[in-house]
Amino acid sequence: MSVLKLPLLYVGSKGEKHLNTLFDSGANLSCINPEFVDKLGHSESFGRTRLISTASEGHYIEIKDRITLDFYLHDVLLSDEFLVVPGLSEEAIIGAATMQKWRIKLNFEEDTVEVDPKVAKMQMI
């Protein structure tokens, strides 16, 4: 598991906010702390509650809601679905699925997060 943390601007239907964001290759899905959801937009309930496993063996968290948000990484506009996770210790987490989707790479030698230049070009069209 590899992690880096950066402040990112998140934009939703109700507003925008900078959140300290953990880029976590050990987390599959992206998550947001419920404290920030009402300030950003409207969450949507899943049809059924989802149980997400944690790093602790046999421990699960019930997830009932999700929210779709735009976020900016180095002035590149990206978007994804974030699980609303009760008790999340971080403000937001970008997981491996989002990193793959947008070709985000973690550079641990320089402690930076990089966006593939092709993704940046796609956003300019």
Rank of each mutant, 00 (worst) to 15 (best):
V3N: 13
V3W: 02
K5C: 12
L9V: 10
G12E: 07
S13Q: 09
G15K: 00
K17N: 02
K17G: 04
H18T: 08
H18W: 03
L19I: 11
T21I: 12
T21R: 08
L22V: 14
F23T: 06
F23N: 09
F23A: 05
S25K: 03
G26N: 10
G26P: 11
A27S: 15
S30Q: 05
C31V: 07
I32R: 00
I32V: 13
N33S: 12
P34V: 08
F36D: 11
V37D: 14
D38C: 13
D38M: 10
K39A: 13
K39G: 10
L40A: 05
L40G: 04
L40N: 06
G41W: 02
G41Y: 03
H42I: 13
H42L: 12
E44H: 05
E44M: 04
S45F: 09
S45D: 09
S45E: 12
G47I: 11
R48C: 07
R48I: 13
T49S: 12
T49L: 09
R50P: 01
L51I: 07
A55Q: 00
S56C: 03
S56R: 12
H59D: 15
H59F: 10
H59M: 12
I61M: 09
I63N: 11
D65W: 07
D65C: 06
D65N: 15
D70S: 10
Y72F: 15
Y72M: 11
H74V: 09
D75S: 14
V76K: 01
V76Y: 00
L77E: 13
L77G: 07
S79K: 14
E81K: 07
F82P: 01
V84R: 04
V85R: 02
V85A: 08
G87T: 12
G87A: 13
L88Q: 09
L88R: 07
E91N: 11
E91S: 14
A92N: 01
I93P: 00
I94V: 15
A96V: 02
T98C: 15
M99L: 04
Q100S: 10
K101S: 05
W102F: 12
R103T: 05
L106H: 03
E109Q: 14
E110R: 15
E110H: 15
E114R: 03
E114C: 02
E114H: 00
E114Y: 00
V115E: 01
K118Q: 04
K118P: 00
V119L: 03
M122V: 09
M122E: 14
M124Y: 08
I125F: 04
I125G: 13
